[in-house]
Design a protein around this nucleic acid. Structure first.
Length: 702
DNA sequence: GAGCACTGC
């Protein structure tokens, strides 16, 4: 490691007063939990403190962030405070962009990037300190990292320090997870926010928000208003109604007003409007989704209106289906929303629910992502790490996902050849884990490489992982239809093929952003899929067999029916297969559970001359809205389906969990226990887990 | 013939 010669000029932040306390705790313990409220400076200062105290002498300090923008902006800030340029002593690494060098001592990175690094370098030797920042957000990746860190500190007890930092995280719970490590509290610099509750839950929260907003506008001092809604539809409704009501107010009775929507699917140029300073003598109303809760910070907000709901996507492992539900927020979320009013001066938060509901009905914290999502990708990742104790269901999670969810993941991975019937990762599975994709798409790529249609499959995988959506301009419905007709239609084979054709057309237009807008496509999504495709090409060149032809324009004419590509998709989506009913166009899923589903109306797939849809299709996902739908489907042939049916017959969850040698994992675990008997708590935990394992085995084998 | 919150490798 190069020697350190950074100037040290810490700004005065609450955390600075706790410097000695922090350093003492880190010195004496492998893991320390730091609870720092908003404005405590933990994200920018912790790394600098440890750097000053010599922790960069034998390695780099890594600080993970759940979001890319945060990794970039915080690292820039730190570089500025230390008077160095980014990429030198201070750098960041996010997908598609690595701004670090051999000189880098403080490295900000997304949690996903750190997980990828740990794949090729499980001990993460280059780091002397790993800080998991914003752990309270409980992103899927952070949760997996928490489990990995618990292991890592045992293997690197002498030379690794781990800090878990968060705003409101239940410190005791994490401390318990890490064998009772110390918890430090750092106060923040947020201003007080007064909270007002409704006496009842409103029957119509749009109307209720409207009245509150007008009330503020007429009676309150200047200051912007942030209104939390659940989705785009509600926001649009709210914006137009609010504008109307403000217009109807008596002339000169109050100041000017500007109403702005804010949500993720807004084009960037419209999102930016929110960050422009307000015109003088004008109150802004920002009607936003959850983006304004953590991802985007709007300056000037003094009033918050909180409807108490959020739209949440959840996965049901017993049906394999996603649903998007409006659910009550948690107390942590409610407080986070309220905190948005106190960033520049004391504020007010209007909660459109009674305090009894906040106290009794709201969950303490939001259900962590790991319990709301399909785990196939994460389980494959963990399997690829070759952890010594083999049963993935015993992985030490802070909040374990359900057994059902983990078993669902094992079944899915088995059906696409990532693990064998004994639950062991296969060679195919190892390759899949290298690719930053959903397991189905990575399996498709590997099969495509065998079949000689890699270039097309790369495009499909890239476009699908960018999830481009055809932009919706409801007011210009007719025009939209006209434009969409000019786009390729998948040649009757479905949405995957259409997406491929769209990307190829864009490629032929030399990736012109204007081509996207002309065809009513989101340029942002298309650009992202192009970046993903490049990244995938680079990775696959290292692992592909034989010569690879990766140009997007190639490979079109040789296979007019896209047979190779569709076959590769059939193998990759072997866990997501559906068969049409005999007499109508409904489908049932083919797998270890059967669901009645339909092709989503947005699909390009159309019936034959008799109006019949293909007998077999694979689908990208099941989403339960008004009914269960398959989104993004591709027609496949019966002959390709047979191997999947065969695998289904052999599927045995007991074997997937415990493998052929059921006692091997236990023996390994006992061996591990005995080598850690100096840590009594770990020993007890391991024995309890072993006991549990034997019990499970006994129960399931009966 | 329906309608999608937010992240990330």
């Amino acid at each position: 490691m190069p020697s350190t010669s950074l100037p040290a000029t810490p700004p005065v932040l609450p955390i600075s007063e706790h410097e000695d306390e922090i350093v003492a705790a880190v010195e004496a313990n492998p893991v320390v939990v730091v609870i720092g409220e908003t404005g405590s400076g933990k994200s920018t200062q912790l790394s600098q403190i440890l750097h000053r105290r010599g922790y960069t002498r034998r390695g780099t300090i890594a600080i993970t962030q759940p979001r890319r923008v945060a990794a970039v902006s915080v690292s820039r800030r730190v570089a500025q405070e230390l008077g160095v340029s980014i990429g030198e002593e201070v750098g960041y690494a996010i997908r598609f962009e690595d701004r670090t060098s051999e000189k880098t001592l403080i490295k900000y990175l997304t949690d996903g990037v750190l997980l990828r690094e740990s794949l090729s370098n499980p001990e993460l030797k280059q780091y002397s300190v790993i800080i998991l920042d914003e752990a309270h957000e409980r992103s899927l990746n952070t949760d997996i990292l928490l489990g990995l860190m618990k292991r890592l500190i045992k293997d690197r007890a002498s030379d690794l320090k781990v800090l878990i930092t968060s705003a409101t995280l239940d410190g005791l719970k994490v401390s318990k997870f890490f064998s009772g490590c110390p918890v430090l509290n750092i106060p923040g610099t947020i201003f007080p926010v007064e909270k007002f509750y409704s006496t009842d839950r409103p029957t119509n929260y749009i109307e209720s928000s409207l009245r509150t907003a007008i009330d503020i506008h007429v009676k309150e001092v200047p200051g912007d208003v942030l209104i939390f809604m659940t989705g785009k539809d509600d926001i649009d409704k709210m914006v137009s109604k609010l504008e109307e009501r403000i217009q109807n107010l008596e002339e000169g009775s109050c100041m000017d007003a500007l109403v702005l929507p804010l949500h993720g699917s807004l084009p960037p140029e419209q999102q930016v409007r929110v960050f422009a300073p307000a015109p003088p003598e004008c109150r802004r109303f920002i009607v936003a989704t959850n983006v304004a809760e953590t991802s985007l910070t709007v300056d000037g907000v003094v009033f918050v209106i909180d409807c108490g709901y959020v739209k949440q996507r959840q996965y049901n492992p017993s049906t394999g289906m996603y649903s998007l539900d409006v659910v009550q927020i948690s107390r942590v979320q409610a407080d986070q929303r309220a905190g948005r009013a106190g960033r520049t001066r004391p504020g007010k938060c209007y909660r459109l629910y009674p305090s009894s509901i906040y106290q009794k009905e709201f969950l303490e914290a939001t259900i962590p992502e790991i319990q709301r999502t399909s785990l196939a990708g994460s389980v494959l990742y963990l399997k690829s790490l070759n952890l010594p104790d083999i049963d993935i269901l015993m992985f030490d999670f802070l909040d374990p996902p359900s057994r059902e969810s983990l078993e669902d993941a094992l079944r899915q991975l088995y059906l696409i050849d990532a693990i064998d019937e004994n639950g062991q990762i296969t060679d195919v599975g190892r390759l899949m884990a290298e690719l930053p994709l959903d397991p189905s798409l990575s399996r498709t790529l590997i099969e495509a490489n065998e079949l000689g249609c890699l270039s097309q499959a790369l495009t499909v995988a890239a476009v699908l992982s960018a999830e481009i959506t055809l932009r919706q301009t409801r007011s210009k419905e007719i025009e939209r239809k006209r434009k969409r007709r000019e786009l390729p239609d998948g040649s009757g084979w479905g949405d995957h093929i259409q997406l491929l054709q769209i990307f190829e057309s864009w490629d032929q237009a030399d990736y012109d952003p204007k081509w996207c807008s002309d065809h009513d496509l989101q340029a942002r999504g298309m650009k992202f899929s192009k970046d993903v495709r490049n990244q995938l090409s680079q990775i696959i060149q290292k692992i592909a067999k034989g010569p690879t032809d990766l140009q997007a324009r190639r490979g079109r004419k040789s296979d007019p029916d896209y047979r190779k590509l569709r076959k590769a998709l059939c193998v990759g989506y072997g866990n997501q297969l559906a068969e049409r009913m005999l007499h109508h166009n409904g489908y049932h899923t083919v797998g270890y559970r059967t669901q009645l589903v339909q092709v989503h109306p947005s699909s390009v797939l159309e019936g034959d001359e008799y109006g019949k849809l293909p007998v077999y299709v694979v689908y990208h996902e099941l989403i339960n809205t008004t009914r269960p739908f398959m989104r993004n489907v591709c027609a496949v042939e019966q002959a390709w389906v047979k191997p999947i049916l065969k695998k289904l017959e052999k599927l045995n969850i007991k074997k997937l969990r415990y493998g052929g040698h059921v006692f091997k994992p236990m023996i390994v675990q006992v061996a591990r226990c005995t080598s850690y008997t100096n840590n009594l708590e770990y020993f007890i935990t391991a024995v309890v887990q072993l006991h549990q394992q034997i019990l499970n085995l006994w129960v399931t084998s009966k």
